[in-house]
Every structure is written in C-alpha cells, then in structure tokens.
Design a protein around this nucleic acid. Structure first.
Length: 847
RNA sequence: GGGCGCUUAGCUCAGCGGUAGAGCGCUGCCCUUACAAGGCAGAGGUCGGGGGUUCGAAACCCUCAGCGCCCACCA
C-alpha cells in the first residue's frame, strides 16, 4: 500500500499517459482471433483544422466503448488515422511553402523546398505531385503531433503505434487498388455525362457534397411562338439559358397543352425550333404548367434530356460564363441565325447573373417577356464549400455504380445496428433519394490520382475506351510521373504515345476505405482477417450520407459485407445558447483550456453524460461536477485504504448487503454499455458511489478502525476493498486518470487491463444477502443526520435514543446493521417498534 | 412537400403505465479524526396545448403548435 498524504488530480494526465505508452497498455495484440477482437473504425480528423469540444465529445464516446470492451475481455483494435487528403491541406501547403501542385512537372528526387528561390512571396513555384505530397506529409506531420498530444491528454486509449494518413502510401495504394478492381468488375466507368459542377473550384462534385440554400430569384414569364401563330407561355428563373433550350415539356394529363404536344415552337430571340413533349415529371401546378428544358439548367433537365432523348445544346462553360456559340450550324439551327447570333454576342462572356439581366432587356424589347419578373425565394444547389450556385455541365468523369445497388444498400442499412436506432432513417432517406451514380473524379491536382493512362492515336487524341492500367504490385502510381507498361517516358503526350489520367479521386474515395486501410487490406492479410468486418463505426450525424454511406458502398462492392456491425452516432456540441459552435461566430472553446481548468477526467465526465445522437449544450458546470467526482474518488479511496485492520472473511450482514447492491449496479452498467448507453452506465455507477461514501463509509468506519471485534473489522476492511475495486473498474472508462492513480496505490498493473466486474465475482459473498440491511442502515443514519443538522448540531453530536418504527421484516434487516448505526450516529440506544410505516424518532442527548 | 427527433423545476437532463426526479443554480443552516472541491434542509413544475384508451397517463394512441435536423426534380 502506497497512499499519498494528500491526493491531487493535478499532474495525473502526464504521469499516466507516459506510463501507458511506456508499458503499452493499449497495444493491440494481433495474435487474437476475429472473435476475440473488437475493431473500431476511428474517424480520421482533418489535421489542417483544429480540434474543438465537439471532437472531444465524440472521441470520448468512442473511447468509452473501447475501454469498456477491452475490460470486458475483447482485444480492442483502436487505430488512429489523420485526414490530410483534401482541399484544406492543399491550400495550407501552397501558402506555407509557396508552391503549387502541377502534375505536368516531373518528380524531382533531389527536391529541396528550402532551396526554392521565389522572386516575390506571392509567387507559387510549380512542383510535381509527388513532391507536393511529400510537402504535405511534412507539414501535416506537425499538425498530427499536436493532435496526438491533445488526444493523449484526453486519455484516448488508441494504439498510437497503429496509424495511417489518408494521403500516405498505404492509403493511396488501397484507393488505387480498390479502384482498379472496381474497373475490372465493371463497377467503375468513365463517361461523358452532365454533372454538378462548381465553377470556382472548376471541378465536378458528387450528390453527397451538394446542399440547398434558399436564394432570392425571379420568375420570368416568357412567350414561345407556336408555328400556327399563337404563343405558349413558360416560366423560368433562368432566362439566360434560353439559347440552351432544347424542348418544352408539359404533363401528359394537362388538357391545356394537349394539342401542343408533338408540335414545334420557336424560342424567343434565338428562333430555335424545339419540340413540345409530355412527361409525368412536369408539374401542372408549377408556373404555367409548361417548362423549358435546357442543357442543362437543373437535375430535372438531365432526367428529361435522358428520357426524352433530347439533343445537347450547351452554352455554359466550365468557368461559369456563357460561351460564344454560332447559330445556323448543325445542332444550332435557327429560323433567324443573324438575330440569334446578335443575341448570343450580347451574352457571351457573361456570368449567369449578368447574362440574366441582359437577356431580360432583350426579351422585353422583343416583347417576349410577359409582365414583370416576380421575386421568389427558392432552393438553389450549392457545393457545400462553394460560394456560387452549381451549374450542370457535361464532362468526362469517373463514376462508381451505385443506383443499381440501391435495394441492397437499403438492406445493409437495416442490417447495421444504429445507435441511436432512429439514425438509420437518415441513411435510408438518403439512399432512397439517390439520383445518380457516384461521381468520384475531381478536377483537382492534389489527391489520389486515378491509376490509369490512355493511349494517344496518330492525331494525338486520347483513346478513352482503351485505358492502360498498371500491375497492382506497382501501386501506388502517379500517371503524371510514372510511365505505363510498354511505353517510354519520351512517348508522353506525343501521337502514338500515351497520357496520364489528369484527375484525382474524391476525398471520400479514400476515406470510404478507412476500415480496409486501417485493417491492412491485401498488404497484411493476416491482420485483415482478424479485424474485418469491424465492430464499430463511430461518427457524427452530419456525414451519414458521405462517409458512412460510401463506406457501406465500398464494403458491399469489394467484400459483399457490411464494413462493421454497429454505428454509434454522436450529436453536436452546441454553445450554451444552443447555437452550433463555429469559428466565424467566435464561440469556439478550445479543449486545452477545459483540460487546464477542470482536468481531462472532468471533461470526459461531461462528454460521458451526453447520450449518443443527442446534441449537447456545452456545459462547463457539468465539468465542475466531474472534477468534484474525480477528487471525491481520490479522497474516499485514500480513506478506505487507510483503514489497515487485517482483512477477514466478509460475513457482516451490512457488508454483504452493500455488495449485493453493488452487484446490481454492475449488471445495470454492463447492460447499459452493451446497449451503447454510456450515459446510463455513468449515472447508475455515480449514484451508487455517492451513497457509498455518504452512508456505507460512514457506517463502517468505526468498525473498520478495528477497536472492537477483529472479525467484524476484517469483514469491513475486506468489503471496502472489494467495493473499491469494483467501483474503480466501473469508473475506469469514464475517468481513466484518477482510477489508474488509485489503482496504483494498492494493485499491480493497469486498471484498464483488469477484467470488467461481473456479478459472478461477487456472487459467493452476496449469496443470500439481504438488500434491505444496507438500505435500512443508510435510511436510519440519514434521518439521524438530518435531525442533528436541523438542530444545528455537529454530525458527531451525541444521541440518547433513536426509535425506529417499521414492518417486522424491515426491522429484522435493521438488526444486522444496528451496531454500525449506533457507532456512526453516536447513539446510546436504538429501540424498534414493529408497527406501521418507516419513521425515525431521534432524541438528542442533553448538553 | 415527405421523414426523424425534441418540448418535464431558473439551467442541463433522466424517467417512458402506478402517489412528479437528479445534478447544477438559488435561499438558509452545520465546519473540520477522508474530503467545505464536504454535509443537511428549503423554495421551485397544472411533465408544450387539446382530445382519447385505462381503475390509473409525463409515459400508450390521435391531433394541433413550437423548435431542431435530414431528405426532396432550382420550371
């Protein structure tokens, strides 16, 4: 026994973190079988951002599960990953080193960034993709250290020897290998198709990265001329797309337009003949009931264009401007090409808003604009990181087949155990609403490139339908630097030679393989067999449709299984005014501040009291409570262990009764953890603990001092230690630092590698015990204490006599604890009356 | 437009068929042989509104309202 004079929670974090790392407390033992392993697909945080209390909460939730499962006998596979693949990192590296990634620059193995000469600071030197990635590694390495320090201070029990980065070699190899296999299986394909396009980033984006934003707009009522001399009116918010109009559409059941279907009308200004179709998607209630179909104004246009087999007449360029077009040519027929080209000349080079203003003027002069444009507010699609509305632009992109697996993906969603269960509905509604395959290519420079080259024909044009792929053993490759089999570097870009695929993968293309990457898929088959499919995916609810969905998709396509059996979804942390925390609002609280003010255990206590799925208000008060609890554990433990009478057999009725109650707490906490309800587990343990210190400790301390019967004292001391052992283990997942500290005073090894308590270990002691003994002792002592407090006396004040009234059964339970009650309450005599309801009369001694 | 969740004491939340709960905060009291980072007591709620089922509803059903989130083809 090695008890400190005055225990303190200060300094525990550094002390125990160091010890855990040095002794490998959380090291994964890869000799264990899949059944023995509990594998966690830890979310890799974006290292270029900063950690906030939201991370602290959700990562703590995961750690609670990890620590519980580890103690409950599973070998926990708990790796960490860093997400350094993406725009945020790209930008930071550009600014920090003054370089930019240019895939056309060849790799320079002797590259030295410090030797770069820049004429002025704003200039960015082009470097090869490989050199750029090296710089990313270097810069993010520092961020990763800072994150690791913070996570270790928080006490995450991850195995720090198992980590990956999303831009690292392993991740790139896995991403490319998985992609090649999808290609081979026909599940990844390259095609030219209309795609949501961000004009600022100049890249395609996937459905999952799109969000609606309410915008002010204008409805314009516009007349198209019918060939019989009349007009037909449509409404549009995007009149600038009239030159891209390829048809009108009405609902098949709409009587107003029945005679029009099948006829041809002329677009205003451009005088382009376009057909009128009927299609069930046309809504008679919207606008005039007749809609203009353009290539492409929105997603519905794509559907109509595809289903009605319409021609393509694109005016939107990739830079988001209207491009110059010449009417009067094939595909651009016009009844009045001169007039059309004059109008086109007015619009060419303009952004949509400018073009809209201009064309409205032209339409007004022409008389095609009916009435004045009416203001509306409507939802407009934006790239989640973008600032201007997305355009739909036809480009050549890689897609992963998704739509055809919708039913199977829905089935997987039902198979997955969601915590809380209702989060499954979000997944289902997302999958049900999918409208396109996953566009996985991005026109960016930094990221994992597609491991593909294309042969160039005699004219130097790429033959996209004959892609050249590398051997898997060569991965990862960079098609911008590496040369395909059978070619020489000199053949790059020349007729008859080859070119590399210029695109990189969607960042989710890598992240969606996190279980495979962390688990050593193909690189370490032995490990992979022990950890995959994993047990748990912890994450927040905002990325169900991205990270969670894509991970399910990849596992389905690659392995025909779920990637994990359970998904634990954390809520967000809101500021005390229940607003979402964000940097721009300046209401972000840094975790380090909280650790310093309240201790890591206290912060974990706050996080642990928030349930999964529920948005939690940031509550510093709750951290203060956690701190008090941590200190109480230190003090109570020190006291209990300081009672050094010889341990004996646990025979006293009170001791056995208390342990029986504790056994129930064990069961409840275990059930709560098994059901992913850590907050419930914490609550029942904490409730018992406060009663344990207020009542049990007070009741037995006189006996445990050992002045009287050695057997009775021995029972008390043994019970105290037994209970303390169980309580420390129950608290260990929540408060890893104080529990380890106390454990170290009197036990060998780490509490975190000790078995989770179970009823069986207490069964022999508590067999036949009466739960009412502890309850009666606590109740009577409580009443006496209350009486003294009301009389403004010390708790040590002498009591002449106590009369307890209750049923005979309860009074017989009291008999088992009466000696302890007398001693604890400083009571001369206790009388009982076997009659009626529980009541305690306390007669204080005269002074 | 569809879906999910929430609405219980001033605050944060538990309870989810049997006499309204916890912690914090507030008010008052008690110091010190583990801990004042402790102990005791008190005030404070028609459990969002309205119907229904039931001997009995905060809890189950219906309905309405407010808040939050997710999804949806921008005419």
């Amino acid at each position: 026994m090695n008890l400190p004079e005055k225990p303190s929670i200060d300094g525990l974090e550094a002390k125990w973190d160091e010890w855990w790392q040095a002794t490998g407390t959380y090291r994964f033992d890869r000799s264990k079988t899949r059944e023995q392993v509990f594998a966690i697909d830890t979310p890799p945080p974006t290292v270029s951002g900063s950690l906030h209390v939201g991370h602290v909460m959700s990562y703590t939730h995961t750690d609670l599960v990890a620590r519980y499962r580890r103690m409950a006998g599973r070998e926990v596979f708990y790796p960490i990953g860093w997400d350094d693949n993406g725009l945020a990192t790209e930008r930071r590296v550009q600014n920090y080193f003054g370089v930019r990634c240019d895939p056309s620059v060849p790799y320079d193995p002797t590259f030295d960034v410090s030797a770069l000469e820049r004429p002025d600071d704003s200039m960015q030197i082009p470097v090869s993709r490989r050199n750029f990635i090296d710089l990313c590694d270097r810069l993010t390495g520092e961020d990763e250290k800072a994150f690791e320090t913070l996570f270790r201070r928080l006490g995450l029990s991850v195995d720090w020897t198992i980590h990956y980065t999303t831009v690292g070699t392993t991740s790139r190899r896995a991403s490319q290998r998985a992609f090649l296999r999808l290609m081979d299986a026909g599940l990844a394909y390259r095609t030219e198709a209309p795609t949501m396009w961000d004009v600022d980033f100049r890249t395609a984006v996937a459905q999952a990265e799109i969000e609606d934003r309410e915008q002010a707009g204008m409805y314009h009522r516009i007349a198209f001329d019918r060939e019989d001399g009349g007009t037909v009116e449509i409404e549009t918010s995007r009149p600038e797309l009239i030159p891209a109009c390829v048809a009108l559409v009405t609902h098949p059941g709409d009587e107003r337009y029945r005679s029009l279907v099948g006829s041809t009308v002329l677009t205003p200004l451009f005088r382009v003949p376009v057909p009128v179709f009927a299609h069930p998607l046309a809504d008679p209630e919207k606008g005039t009931g007749a809609a203009m179909i353009c290539t492409f104004g929105d997603i519905t246009d794509i559907t109509w264009w595809r289903e009605l087999g319409l021609p393509t007449r694109v005016v939107m360029e990739r830079d988001g401007r209207i491009g110059a077009r010449t009417f009067g040519q094939p595909g651009w027929e016009s009844r009045d090409p001169d007039r059309a080209n004059a109008a086109m000349a007015e619009l060419a080079g303009l952004h949509p808003k400018q073009a809209r203003t201009r064309i409205v003027e032209l339409l007004r002069e022409d008389g095609a604009l009916l009435g004045e444009p009416q203001p509306v507010r409507h939802a407009v699609k934006f790239y989640e990181k973008g600032e201007r509305p997305l355009e739909v632009i036809a480009t050549r992109q890689w897609f992963v087949r998704t739509l055809q697996f919708r039913d199977r993906l829905l089935e997987r969603g039902r198979e997955l155990r969601w915590h809380p269960g209702y989060m499954g509905a979000r997944y289902a509604s997302w999958v049900e609403g999918l409208n396109s395959d996953w566009c996985i290519s991005r026109q960016r420079f930094f990221g994992v490139p597609f491991p593909v080259w294309y042969p160039l024909d005699a004219d130097g044009r790429p033959r996209y339908d004959e892609p050249i792929t590398p051997q898997e053993s060569a991965l990862p490759i960079d098609p911008a630097g590496d040369v395909p089999p059978g070619f020489t570097p000199e053949q790059r870009g020349v007729p008859g030679g080859f070119m590399g695929d210029p695109d990189v993968m969607d960042t989710w293309g890598t992240s969606s393989l996190s279980p495979q990457i962390a688990g050593g898929w193909e690189d370490d088959p032995d490990l992979f067999a022990r950890v995959f499919p994993m047990d748990l995916r912890p994450q927040a609810h905002d990325i169900i449709r991205t990270w969670l969905f894509y991970t399910v998709l990849r596992a389905e396509l690659q392995h025909g299984s779920l990637p994990w059996s359970d998904a634990a979804i954390s809520g967000f942390v809101l500021d005390p005014d229940r607003k979402k925390m964000s940097k721009s609002k300046g209401n972000v609280i840094t975790p380090i501040e909280m650790f310093e003010r309240h201790s890591a255990d206290a912060v974990r206590y706050w996080a642990g009291s928030a349930r999964l799925g529920v948005d939690a208000a940031f509550d510093e008060q709750q951290m203060k409570v956690g701190r008090k609890l941590a200190i109480k554990i230190l003090n109570a433990s020190r006291f209990a262990l300081s009672l050094e009478a010889a341990e004996g057999a646990i025979v006293d009725p009170l001791d056995r009764s208390m342990l029986l109650r504790l056994a129930r707490v064990v069961t409840e906490a275990t059930e709560a953890f098994d059901g992913y309800d850590h907050a419930r587990a914490l609550e029942v343990v904490e409730r018992f603990f406060w009663g344990f210190t207020d009542d049990y400790l007070e009741l037995v301390k006189g006996r445990a001092y050992g002045a009287g019967d050695p057997g009775a004292a021995g029972s008390a001391v043994a019970s105290l230690r037994q209970a303390l052992s169980v309580l420390l283990r129950l608290f260990a997942p929540f408060l890893p630092f104080v529990t380890e500290e106390v454990w170290s005073w009197w036990r060998e090894g780490s509490v975190h590698r000790t078995a989770w308590p179970n009823e069986a270990e207490l069964a022999q002691i508590t067999s036949g015990a009466d739960p009412a003994v502890y309850e009666m002792g606590a109740s009577v002592l409580g009443e006496v204490r209350k009486c003294k407090a009301l009389a403004k006396l010390s708790v040590r004040a002498e009591v002449e006599r106590v009369v307890v009234r209750d049923s005979p059964e309860r009074l017989s339970a009291l008999a088992g604890v009466v000696g302890d009650v007398r001693q604890a309450g400083n009571i001369a005599e206790i009388r009982t009356v076997a009659d009626g309801e529980f009541a305690v009369e306390t007669i204080l001694a005269q002074r």
